[in-house]
Design a protein around this nucleic acid. Structure first.
Lengths: 327, 327
DNA sequence: CTGTTAGCGCATTCAT
DNA sequence: ATGAATGCGCTAACAG
């Protein structure tokens, strides 16, 4: 900036004024400065500017499991879109379900003075965020934090699972398996709770043999479903509820040609579900990211700071696989 | 930091030393400072630190089309993984194929003093990046920049298309359509060139009626394929080559129940392609992001700066849809 | 309308 | 082994 000032023959402050579109500069000098900027290819150092002005850094931090997962990719897209409305850039980080790594990433974001933090919590403890005196908003997505009191955006996991199971029961199924994430995950707990509740409401007993809450990955689900299908016929489930999109894909692989003989309802939409005729509980990951980002970046309500919790609705989309009768 | 120094009863510099693990501080004082840091919840301001030290910002900027697209999501994941090895964070931005928006985003990243810039170019001109005196590396992904001389990582588009078309010709097809992106896109040009070359090599003439280079979206491809299938039988193609993953999905929707009667080869892998039995030209987007990030963040070779270009190989994966005979 | 001075939070340089 | 002064690039608060 000093170079620009020298080249234009004005003071530093005048250059600063031109750059920030402040008024009170002679058009002549404005032109002079602009010419100097263009010829020198000068770009203002936003970092130095925000350091001095104390203004926001216009940067948002997002901590998810993995951008490679389409579900989180959509969340990231939504957050980026909202951030853009606030002239902010988005730093996306993947914690890979590792609490230690999550903490490192959050610390790195805090050190970089992000304005807001959006977190899909992997770790059990997030009190340290508040204890750093972090001035911005922290919003949790998809899962509530175990400890801290902060804004949270969830989907209606239990109700979604209930919808799925009730639907299968309505189509005559009595032995319905659930394949999902490890029970340590909040979403897994909720979805399993919905599963149990729906079974109970249908007068059915839950059979532990049909409950496979494991790693929740594509491969683990494939194996789990293959195992279920290999059970003797009186033990074998006539329908499967897959508790996340990875599991649904895994189940499809395991079922393969048996697809039209086993009931299947998946939690979360996925690409080509329509073509494959897979009945799903649709959630709206884009909306989740959007709502969370709005909570984080929007103006906060007056009065005492109170944690806001949003639970987004879910919807059953019937496409055939959930309407297969038991056999 | 001043607060910490006061609380610990030492000078600013001593705190700085403890934070940066510099030697030459009495264990007593180290403990004192660490206690103060813990009790105050202090986190160093990395931004201020890098401003003063002139060190790298440990931030990388990525400009892609859209994180929502699984192809780019994987690229982003790869870049983030490599960035992590360099202790850097990743700012991901979506330009949505809009040159103006691309320019805004790049400028914003430059102003934030990213260490490196990874760009899937949408705009035609990137000379302005160099003219800002940007000190870091710029690497282009997926498409070469129209003007500037910079490192570039591509996949072998033309060869991939040739593989696909030659394969279809080998299975007896004579009327093969291509459905892809607008011809203004580099990848579209290359893939179309490969298409033409393979047809010529097979002694076939290209028929403009079978060439649909449009928006390259799921919907545009669905419509294009539907249109092709509605042609009178002597004009109708017996096989379709879809030039990107969006188009392949769109084609699958359009074909639907005709899937086993029309040859189909898609460019780029996609989830469930195996289950659907879709033959594809496989590229490796993760590798692309990885190589690009390594070029950007790795140590530069000595001597005069010379643009490096990497072309990643492609591979035909046969799964059935490309082996359907013409009918 | 314009320029000067001071200082954001930190690290470098050089004292002590 | 520690600390004081200086300045990174920029803007706020004043002067002129």
């Amino acid at each position: 900036m000093l170079d620009v000032a020298t080249a234009a023959g004005v003071s530093l402050k005048t250059v600063s004024r031109v750059i920030n579109d402040e008024q009170g500069v002679t058009p002549t000098k404005v032109a002079l400065v602009k010419a100097a900027i263009a010829s020198l290819g000068y770009e203002r150092n936003d970092i130095a500017a925000s350091l001095r002005s104390g203004a926001k850094s216009r940067t948002v931090g997002l901590v998810i499991e993995d951008v490679g997962n389409p579900f989180y990719a959509v969340v990231a897209q939504a957050v980026e879109d909202v951030a853009r409305e606030y002239s902010s850039l988005l730093i996306t980080t993947s914690a890979r379900e590792d609490p230690e790594r999550e903490r490192q990433l959050i610390t790195a974001l805090l050190r970089r003075r992000v304005d807001a933090l959006l977190i899909v919590p992997a770790g059990p403890d997030h009190g340290y965020i508040a204890s750093t005196g972090f001035a911005g908003n922290t919003v949790f997505l998809d899962r509530p934090p175990a400890d801290s009191e902060a804004d949270t955006v969830l989907v209606d996991n239990a109700v979604g699972a209930e919808l799925a199971i009730t639907h299968l029961i309505g189509h005559g199924h009595r032995r319905i398996a659930i394949v999902g994430d490890a029970i340590s995950l909040y979403t897994a707990q909720e979805r399993l709770a919905g599963y149990r509740r729906a079974l109970a409401a249908g007068g059915l007993e839950a059979d532990d043999e049909l409950i496979s809450m494991d790693h929740g990955t594509l491969d683990s689900a494939r194996e789990a479903v293959a195992h279920l299908m290999a059970l003797p016929s009186e033990h074998r489930p006539t329908a499967v509820f897959t508790a996340n999109n990875r599991c649904t894909i895994g189940a499809l692989h395991a079922l393969d040609s048996d697809r039209d003989r086993v009931g299947l309802v998946g939690f979360d939409e996925f690409e080509l579900a329509d073509l494959l005729g897979v009945t799903v509980v649709r959630t709206d990951p884009y909306r989740m990211g959007q709502v969370a980002a709005d909570l984080a970046l929007g103006t906060n309500p007056e009065g005492p700071r109170q944690a806001r919790q949003v639970v987004l609705p879910v919807e059953l989309i019937t496409r055939g696989s959930g309407e297969i009768p038991p056999r």
